[in-house]
């Protein structure tokens, strides 16, 4: 499959000059649809219902938001590995705020946003203005959020706040989609409110990256910092805003995650930062900067969770198969990307 695509796109690149971003995006989307189609054809029951697809969205709404933020930082050539533990911190803080401190849902939302913005301001300042490597800064951020979560509250508990429970149980029915269950009743397909937030984030960021001045600056800074500087782009401010945006999105994603699970725990969203990085990579964002797209990231998240579902419905239930398959998938995508880009660069020369 891989060489086929590369040959096809190789021709395209000579004719229309397809950019790296679009090339990798095409690969991701094609692979996702092929994979899902295979699942529907060969694995049947579990994947045919529309709700199966919407459940993937429901389970991964938070990850989509986190991954989009990660993609933006990666496009500017940085990285932020603090988003996973930041999600846990947001969950725990909101849970404690709602149940013990008598807060309302609105203040909990503001709290989540505030935590995200605060992390973004500090990390962005350290990375952009003090020129410390983003990996180290976000490593410290990750440690800090991890420790703070247990300082806020060390044990897991479910939130009993009435208004929040109502919000958590909110279902948005998708018109025209549904299936007939075993009793012969028609069950409409639904999504959680978090999915709507996630989709809005993807659309907003897509518009920002495609047509926004700031979005174009992200690509310019990630592609070549010095030429961006010479073009009159404020490199430091751009980097600062990228990190601020990423952490703010992590705050929003944290609240979406909180809405999905409805509890606070130090082990929430553990490893989410690595899943976010993996999704971005599968979606065609390159860690070296300058290449990437949030639509690809969106499909990256979907691919990642589809492969997980496929593995579990194949009956390979031992815990290790999921991880090994996901790793194999990342490996495959990386090698395909690297081969495609190497070939493309050679054909240019």
């Amino acid at each position: 499959m891989a060489p086929e695509i590369s040959v096809k796109n190789g021709k395209l690149s000579r004719r229309a000059g397809i950019s790296d971003t679009n090339l990798l995006l095409t690969i991701t989307i094609v692979v996702f649809f092929v994979m899902y189609a295979c699942a529907v054809i060969f694995l049947g029951s579990g994947f045919q219902k529309p709700q199966a697809f919407f459940n993937i969205l429901n389970d991964n709404a938070a990850l989509i938001i986190l991954s989009c933020g990660m993609s933006i930082v990666m496009i500017t050539g940085g990285i932020d590995i603090s988003v996973g533990t930041l999600t846990a911190l947001v969950c725990m803080s909101c849970a404690v705020h709602l149940d013990y401190n008598g807060g309302s849902v609105i203040t909990a939302m503001l709290l989540a946003l505030g935590i995200g913005v605060a992390f973004g301001l500090v990390q962005g300042y350290l990375v952009a203005y003090l020129e410390i490597q983003p990996f180290i800064v976000s490593l410290a951020g990750m440690f800090f959020a991890k420790g703070m979560t247990t300082i806020v509250n060390a044990t897991q508990f479910n939130v009993e706040h009435e208004a929040f429970k109502a919000l958590k149980a909110t279902r948005i029915y998708v018109p025209g989609m549904g299936s007939i269950n075993k009793l012969g009743k028609y069950v409409p397909a639904y999504v959680e409110p978090g999915v709507v937030v996630a989709l809005l984030v993807v659309i907003a960021l897509f518009i920002l990256l495609r047509w926004g001045k700031l979005g174009r600056n992200f690509y310019a800074v990630g592609g070549n910092m010095h030429s961006a500087n010479m073009l009159g782009i404020n490199v430091r401010r751009t980097k600062f805003l990228a990190h601020l945006l990423c952490s703010t999105l992590a705050g929003i994603g944290g609240f979406v995650y909180f809405m999905h699970v409805g509890s606070g725990s130090p082990s929430h969203a553990s490893g989410a930062e690595m899943n976010a990085i993996a999704s971005s990579i599968i979606g065609g964002t390159m860690l070296s900067g300058g290449v990437g797209n949030v639509v690809g990231t969106f499909f990256g998240v979907l691919s990642l969770s589809t492969i997980k579902n496929i593995v579990s419905s194949l009956g390979l239930d031992e815990a290790w198969w999921t991880n090994i398959t996901v790793a194999a998938m990342i490996c495959l995508f990386l090698v395909v990307q690297s081969v495609v880009l190497l070939r493309k660069n050679q054909s240019k020369q």
Partner: peptide, 18 residues
């Protein structure tokens, strides 16, 4: 394959313990 080290080792990071 000229993949960034952090990304390349992410594979083993994910699969290693399994």
């Amino acid at each position: 394959f000229k993949i960034q080290p952090m990304v390349a080792t992410l594979i083993m990071f994910t699969a290693g313990r399994s």
